[in-house]
Every structure is written in C-alpha cells, then in structure tokens.
C-alpha cells in the first residue's frame, strides 16, 4: 500500500513539475517576445518609418535624375568643343539664376490666398517651408520673391520680406510639380481655416504661373 501511495504521490509531483515547467516556458517566451517588440519600437513608430520610406524614395529618384543630368553634362564637356562648354555653362547659369530667384520665371503651380489678422512671420515661414517640402521651385508672396536666403521677419508694423512689409491678404505663388503642390496647398488651407486668426484661405492650380519678382544678389562679405 505504502509503495503504491508513494508511486501515485511521485506521479502527481512529476505532473505538477511538468505543468510548472510548461507555464514557465510560455511565460518566458511571452515576456521575451514583448520585450523584443518594445525594443524594436523604441524610437520610431511604423507610421514615421513609412513616411521616411516615401520621402527617401522621392529623394533617391531626384538624386538619380541629377546624376543622369550631371553625367550628360560631363559627356558634353568631354567632347572638348568650346561651343559645347559654353552651352553647358550657359544652361547651368540659367538654372542657378532661377533657383536663386535672380530672374523672372514661369511654370505650373499653385496660388494660395490667405486673408487673416494677426499672423506672424513664423506662420509665413511655415507656409513657405510647407510649399518647399511640397516641391516648390520658385515662390513669391505679394509679388516679393522668396528663397531661403531672403529674410522673413516680424517687425512692430507686421511681417517683412527682405525688409519690405507685406500686408495681408497674402497671395503666395509657388511654381513646381502642380500635383504635389496642390496636395500641399489643400492640406495647408484646411489647417489654416481651422485657425481663428484666418478669415479665408483658398488656393487654385495654374497651368502656367508667372513670377516676375526677383531677388537682388548680395555679394558675400565674410565667406569665400
């Protein structure tokens, strides 16, 4: 009897140990899995990663287009002809003058009209940056040309661009990829309309927008 009892008791203990082992195994796997998830997600969420991937795809496409353009320019220059070199340099000068805002330009784009009271220079800087992120290649506000080197500042009298006051309503013209700019403008005007300071914010897409205003180049005094 006592031997049978010991056997049965031993079996029960073994069963309890097996169950405890199984529970410990499941718990360990569970905890490790959760820790791994938490460690992986530390820093960046999946939405931010998706945003990054989208951005990097577009950036890499742009870089590849630039590489192809530069390779073509290099081949033209390697032909050794003076005419070819002059043409390459003339084209480059035209492109850079447009990028720096030194010449009037035209192209597809959007025009935003923002009627508001109390908007600050920071609001205008944000709007211009949003359009630049949306692919703006040339911009003006109330017929004042804006590139990143032109100061947009807050003064007691209001917002100034390059030292000249720009009173609302602001008419912001941006030339670039019209589809991307329209998406950016749509989002911007929605957000602006939610701002109590903004009376009206609208935009329209134009197939051929003209920006005649130019920036006067300042010679460098300190940098060389």
């Amino acid at each position: 009897m006592s031997a049978r009892y010991r056997n049965r008791a031993g079996g029960r203990v073994l069963g309890v140990w097996l169950i405890a082992l199984l529970v410990a195994l499941v718990a360990t796997v569970q905890i490790r899995s959760q820790v791994e998830v938490e460690r992986s997600f530390a820093g960046t969420d999946t939405a931010s990663l998706a945003f990054l991937i989208d951005n990097l795809h577009r950036a890499n496409d742009s870089l590849q287009a630039e590489t192809a353009d530069l390779t073509q320019r290099q081949l033209t220059l390697q032909s050794g002809s003076d005419t070819a070199a002059d043409q390459v340099l003339t084209d480059e000068a035209t492109r850079l003058r447009a990028a720096e805002g030194l010449v009037p330009v035209h192209g597809p784009g959007v025009v935003l009209v923002v009627s508001a009271a109390g908007l600050q220079a920071l609001d205008l800087q944000d709007a211009l940056n949003n359009l630049a992120v949306g692919g703006a290649e040339a911009m003006s506000v109330n017929d004042r040309r804006v590139v990143l080197g032109v100061p947009v500042q807050q003064t007691p009298g209001g917002v100034t661009i390059g030292g000249v006051q720009v009173q609302p309503p602001w008419t912001i013209s941006a030339i670039g990829d019209a589809n991307r700019l329209a998406q950016a403008a749509d989002l911007m005007t929605q957000q602006m309309r939610a701002d109590r300071r903004v009376r009206q914010a609208t935009y329209r897409v134009e197939a051929d927008l003209v920006i005649r205003a130019i920036v006067t180049e300042r010679p460098f005094v300190y940098g060389s």
Binding site: L63, A98, V105, H106, V210
Partner: peptide, 17 residues
C-alpha cells in the same frame, strides 16, 4: 568650413521668361 551641397537643386518645372 562648410561643405558643398551634394544633392539635387531641382528646377525641372521652372522656365525663365
């Protein structure tokens, strides 16, 4: 010392007048 810009200065959609 500042390095040179090493990316694209994209002006594909802009034409000069």
């Amino acid at each position: 010392a500042l390095p040179a810009y090493d990316s694209s200065l994209d002006t594909r959609h802009v034409g000069t007048l």
